[in-house]
Computed example of a mutant assay.
Amino acid sequence: MNDSDVVVCRLSHRPGRDDRMTTHVGLTARALGADRVVLPDNATGSAETVRDITDRFGGPFEVELSGETKALVRGWDGTVAHLTMYGLPVQDVETELREAVASEPLLVVVGGEKVPFEVYDRADYNVAVTNQPHSEIAGLAVFLDRVFDGAELEQPWANADRVVVPKETGKKVVEPDE
């Protein structure tokens, strides 16, 4: 993987209904290797939560709010991968996606309410993590793991106020360099 950006775009957000889901799109994007998440401008609470987690547990990771998520998809200069249960199996396109992201930015589109056909049409890849209904969060996690080939699980975190110490049982969170 090189320095090309991997950006996750949450296409829509229904306040009150999608708050937790949109927040988890951002947290999953951050934890599993994306450089940035773009959330709809009405998802301010989700954006604040993801920024807070980034401040506490480290980055780099950027959170952006946009009133033009569909325009972002239309005008993306790079590869667009739309996560949908109606797409091609991720295991059939993961090698092509890794090659694409090695040379140009990747936009990963995660829907919300009904996704307009123009998104399916614009996408370079409509990708399914199984062709069964399930959570967008699970799909995003598996997709990023396949694109990064597991390397995201070992990524370093800078500027963290807190560090989780892996343990077989129990919880341990410390300040960095403790």
Rank of each mutant, 00 (worst) to 15 (best):
L83R: 00
A160E: 06
G78D: 09
K172R: 15
G139W: 01
D149A: 15
A102K: 13
D92H: 11
P116W: 03
V163M: 07
E96N: 11
E152S: 14
V110D: 00
G78W: 09
P156D: 15
V115Y: 00
V80K: 00
Q132F: 12
V142H: 02
V142S: 02
E154P: 02
V165R: 12
V119S: 00
L88S: 13
V90I: 14
V119T: 03
W157N: 08
L153A: 15
A81W: 01
F117D: 15
D161Y: 03
D121V: 10
G170I: 08
E136V: 08
L107F: 03
D124H: 11
F117R: 09
D77E: 15
N131E: 13
W157F: 14
P105E: 10
P116Q: 05
P166W: 03
G150Q: 10
L106I: 06
E154Y: 10
D124M: 07
Y120K: 01
D149M: 07
D161R: 11
R162D: 07
Q132H: 12
L153H: 14
L153M: 07
L106G: 00
A128P: 02
F117Q: 15
A102P: 06
E154V: 10
H82K: 12
L83P: 01
K114N: 14
V119L: 02
D149N: 10
E96K: 08
V110M: 04
L97H: 01
V109Q: 00
P166S: 12
P105I: 09
A151E: 15
E99G: 08
V90R: 02
V173H: 13
V173G: 13
R98W: 08
V119P: 00
T169K: 12
A100Q: 09
V173P: 05
A100S: 11
K114M: 09
I137L: 12
A123V: 05
L153F: 13
Q155V: 06
R98K: 11
R146E: 15
L83A: 06
V110N: 01
T169Q: 12
